[in-house]
Protein backbone atom coordinates (compact mmCIF):
# COMPACT_ATOMS: atom_id res chain seq x y z
CA UNK A 1 0.00 0.00 0.00
CA UNK A 2 2.80 2.36 0.94
CA UNK A 3 4.62 1.40 -2.24
CA UNK A 4 1.49 2.23 -4.25
CA UNK A 5 1.27 5.61 -2.56
CA UNK A 6 4.97 6.34 -3.10
CA UNK A 7 4.77 5.40 -6.76
CA UNK A 8 1.69 7.64 -7.20
CA UNK A 9 -0.53 4.67 -8.06
CA UNK A 10 -2.80 5.06 -5.04
CA UNK A 11 -5.80 4.80 -5.19
CA UNK A 12 -6.78 4.79 -8.88
CA UNK A 13 -3.97 2.84 -10.53
CA UNK A 14 -3.56 -0.02 -8.11
CA UNK A 15 -5.36 -3.25 -7.27
CA UNK A 16 -9.03 -2.51 -6.52
CA UNK A 17 -9.06 -5.21 -3.83
CA UNK A 18 -6.34 -3.34 -1.99
CA UNK A 19 -8.38 -0.14 -2.04
CA UNK A 20 -11.51 -2.01 -0.96
CA UNK A 21 -9.57 -3.60 1.91
CA UNK A 22 -8.16 -0.23 2.97
CA UNK A 23 -11.66 1.22 3.15
CA UNK A 24 -12.76 -1.58 5.47
CA UNK A 25 -9.65 -2.09 7.57
CA UNK A 26 -9.10 0.67 10.10
CA UNK A 27 -5.31 0.27 10.33
CA UNK A 28 -4.80 0.10 6.56
CA UNK A 29 -7.11 3.07 6.08
CA UNK A 30 -4.99 5.03 8.51
CA UNK A 31 -1.74 3.92 6.83
CA UNK A 32 -3.05 4.87 3.39
CA UNK A 33 -4.35 8.24 4.56
CA UNK A 34 -1.21 9.21 6.46
CA UNK A 35 1.11 7.94 3.73
CA UNK A 36 -0.83 9.82 1.05
CA UNK A 37 -0.79 13.00 3.06
CA UNK A 38 2.91 12.86 3.89
CA UNK A 39 3.94 11.75 0.42
CA UNK A 40 1.88 14.50 -1.19
CA UNK A 41 3.43 17.10 1.11
CA UNK A 42 6.90 15.74 0.46
CA UNK A 43 6.47 15.80 -3.33
CA UNK A 44 5.13 19.34 -3.41
CA UNK A 45 7.65 20.64 -0.91
CA UNK A 46 10.48 19.34 -3.09
CA UNK A 47 9.42 21.63 -5.90
CA UNK A 48 9.04 24.57 -3.56
CA UNK A 49 12.27 24.03 -1.65
CA UNK A 50 15.07 26.47 -2.32
CA UNK A 51 18.47 24.97 -1.78
CA UNK A 52 21.83 26.67 -2.27
CA UNK A 53 23.90 25.64 -5.27
CA UNK A 54 26.19 22.66 -4.83
CA UNK A 55 29.25 24.84 -5.45
CA UNK A 56 28.21 27.20 -2.70
CA UNK A 57 27.77 24.37 -0.19
CA UNK A 58 31.13 22.92 -1.23
CA UNK A 59 32.82 26.33 -0.91
CA UNK A 60 31.41 26.92 2.58
CA UNK A 61 32.40 23.42 3.63
CA UNK A 62 35.93 23.94 2.30
CA UNK A 63 36.31 27.21 4.21
CA UNK A 64 34.88 25.63 7.34
CA UNK A 65 37.24 22.66 7.01
CA UNK A 66 40.19 25.03 6.76
CA UNK A 67 39.04 26.96 9.85
CA UNK A 68 38.53 23.74 11.77
CA UNK A 69 41.98 22.47 10.83
CA UNK A 70 43.51 25.82 11.84
CA UNK A 71 41.81 25.56 15.21
CA UNK A 72 42.91 21.97 15.57
CA UNK A 73 46.49 22.98 14.79
CA UNK A 74 46.52 25.66 17.50
CA UNK A 75 45.01 23.36 20.11
CA UNK A 76 48.33 21.75 21.21
CA UNK A 77 49.81 25.25 21.59
CA UNK A 78 46.93 26.23 23.85
CA UNK A 79 47.50 23.10 25.91
CA UNK A 80 51.19 23.95 26.12
CA UNK A 81 50.28 27.43 27.36
CA UNK A 82 48.05 25.91 29.99
CA UNK A 83 50.72 23.50 31.18
CA UNK A 84 53.29 26.32 31.27
CA UNK A 85 50.89 28.46 33.27
CA UNK A 86 50.23 25.66 35.75
CA UNK A 87 53.97 25.01 36.08
CA UNK A 88 54.60 28.73 36.68
CA UNK A 89 51.97 28.77 39.43
CA UNK A 90 53.56 25.70 41.03
CA UNK A 91 57.05 27.21 40.89
CA UNK A 92 55.78 30.47 42.35
CA UNK A 93 54.04 28.73 45.25
CA UNK A 94 57.13 26.59 45.88
CA UNK A 95 59.32 29.71 45.85
CA UNK A 96 57.03 31.46 48.34
CA UNK A 97 56.99 28.50 50.71
CA UNK A 98 60.79 28.09 50.39
CA UNK A 99 61.40 31.80 50.94
CA UNK A 100 59.09 32.16 53.89
CA UNK A 101 61.45 30.61 56.55
CA UNK A 102 64.22 32.93 55.31
CA UNK A 103 61.98 35.98 55.38
CA UNK A 104 60.93 35.38 58.96
CA UNK A 105 64.45 35.55 60.56
CA UNK A 106 65.18 38.64 58.47
CA UNK A 107 62.04 40.26 59.79
CA UNK A 108 62.99 39.22 63.33
CA UNK A 109 66.49 40.69 62.98
CA UNK A 110 65.06 43.88 61.55
CA UNK A 111 62.61 43.96 64.41
CA UNK A 112 65.37 43.46 67.01
CA UNK A 113 67.24 46.42 65.55
CA UNK A 114 64.10 48.59 65.45
CA UNK A 115 62.74 47.52 68.84
CA UNK A 116 64.88 50.04 70.69
CA UNK A 117 63.05 52.90 69.04
CA UNK A 118 59.64 51.93 70.46
CA UNK A 119 58.50 53.38 73.78
CA UNK A 120 57.12 50.07 75.14
CA UNK A 121 57.39 46.32 74.50
CA UNK A 122 53.61 46.04 73.78
CA UNK A 123 53.81 48.63 71.03
CA UNK A 124 56.84 46.90 69.58
CA UNK A 125 55.05 43.51 69.55
CA UNK A 126 51.97 45.01 67.87
CA UNK A 127 54.11 46.62 65.17
CA UNK A 128 56.05 43.36 64.68
CA UNK A 129 52.84 41.39 64.18
CA UNK A 130 51.61 44.02 61.74
CA UNK A 131 54.84 43.85 59.75
CA UNK A 132 54.63 40.04 59.56
CA UNK A 133 51.03 40.21 58.36
CA UNK A 134 51.94 42.91 55.82
CA UNK A 135 54.79 40.80 54.48
CA UNK A 136 52.47 37.83 54.00
CA UNK A 137 49.82 40.00 52.34
CA UNK A 138 52.50 41.57 50.15
CA UNK A 139 53.66 38.18 48.94
CA UNK A 140 50.07 37.10 48.19
CA UNK A 141 49.45 40.38 46.33
CA UNK A 142 52.62 39.86 44.29
CA UNK A 143 51.54 36.33 43.44
CA UNK A 144 48.10 37.57 42.35
CA UNK A 145 49.66 40.29 40.21
CA UNK A 146 51.77 37.68 38.50
CA UNK A 147 48.96 35.18 38.06
CA UNK A 148 46.19 37.59 37.04
CA UNK A 149 47.45 38.13 33.47
CA UNK A 150 47.79 34.38 33.02
CA UNK A 151 44.30 33.79 34.35
CA UNK A 152 42.92 36.51 32.07
CA UNK A 153 44.68 35.00 29.09
CA UNK A 154 43.13 31.59 29.64
CA UNK A 155 39.72 33.02 30.47
CA UNK A 156 39.57 35.00 27.24
CA UNK A 157 41.08 32.39 24.96
CA UNK A 158 38.64 29.96 23.31
CA UNK A 159 40.13 26.82 24.77
Amino acid sequence: MVNAVLSNHWPHSCDERLVAHALECEVCCEVASIATLIHDDSERSRYEAHVPAAGQVWWRAAIRARLDSTQAATRPMTWLHGITGAAAIGVLLAAISAAWPMVMPMLDRGWAMAAGYFPSADAATAVANGVRLSAMLGLIAAAILLLAPLALYFALSDE
Binding site: W58, W59, A61, A62, I63, A65, R66, S69
Partner: peptide, 10 residues
Protein backbone atom coordinates in the same frame (compact mmCIF):
# COMPACT_ATOMS: atom_id res chain seq x y z
CA UNK B 1 44.29 26.94 -0.44
CA UNK B 2 41.20 25.69 1.33
CA UNK B 3 39.84 24.30 -1.96
CA UNK B 4 42.92 22.19 -2.62
CA UNK B 5 42.84 21.03 0.98
CA UNK B 6 39.13 20.21 0.71
CA UNK B 7 39.79 17.72 -2.07
CA UNK B 8 42.15 15.88 0.27
CA UNK B 9 40.08 16.26 3.46
CA UNK B 10 36.64 15.48 2.09
Amino acid sequence: GAFDEAERTF
